[in-house]
């Protein structure tokens, strides 16, 4: 079954999505994880501040700071199912839906992209997590995005 397993998508900025398909009778149970970095403490004020309470980041000497980002996870579970054409005997109709799943209780559609074995959900492409590298590559991109964000702020 082409859907079973874990798929990883990235919004290009601060959020990675991991969705895992498990068989559940005629449909799928899908666990959706949203992963993002959050700074452990508030950023320091870019121009310093007179009010230490606003600024609880880890301060070193000489107004230098260490910022630690912690990966956070929001999880939820939903379902996906094959779409049954109105006329099941019509091969053309069946063909039309062969790469689509009704997702999240019918709220959206998953499209399976044959040519590169990816999923398309809400404008985001998901790659099959064939090795931990797929996830780690995205984590690196998310870390870069955070570094750039800090460079812009400070």
């Amino acid at each position: 079954n082409k859907y079973l397993g874990t798929w990883v998508g990235y919004d290009g900025n601060n959020v990675m999505y991991r969705i895992t398909f498990q068989e559940n009778g005629k449909e799928y149970m899908v666990t959706e994880d949203k992963l993002f970095y959050k700074s452990e403490k508030n950023y320091p004020s870019p121009h310093g501040t007179l009010f230490p309470s606003i600024d609880d980041s880890v301060k070193q000497t000489n107004n230098t700071y260490n910022i630690n980002f912690i990966l956070q996870k929001d999880s939820r579970t939903t379902t996906a199912r094959e779409i049954t054409p109105q006329n099941e005997k019509d091969d053309k109709e069946k063909d039309k839906y062969k790469n689509q799943l009704s997702y999240d209780e019918g709220r959206t559609i998953i499209r399976y992209i044959e040519k590169d074995n990816t999923l398309l959900i809400n404008g985001i492409r998901y790659k099959k997590e064939t090795s931990p590298d797929v996830t780690n590559d995205i984590l690196k991109q998310m870390q870069n995005a955070k570094r750039i964000e800090l460079e812009t702020k400070f």
Binding site: L35, Y37, E40, P44, S45, P46, H47, G48, Q60, N62, N63, T64, Y65, N66, I67, N68, F69, I70, L71, Q72, K73, T135, L139, Q143, K146, R147, L150, F154
Partner: peptide, 14 residues
Amino acid sequence: VIIDKITFDDSILT
């Protein structure tokens, strides 16, 4: 303000 070090904690994945 100088950002001296940026660290990332991914322990949630392990």
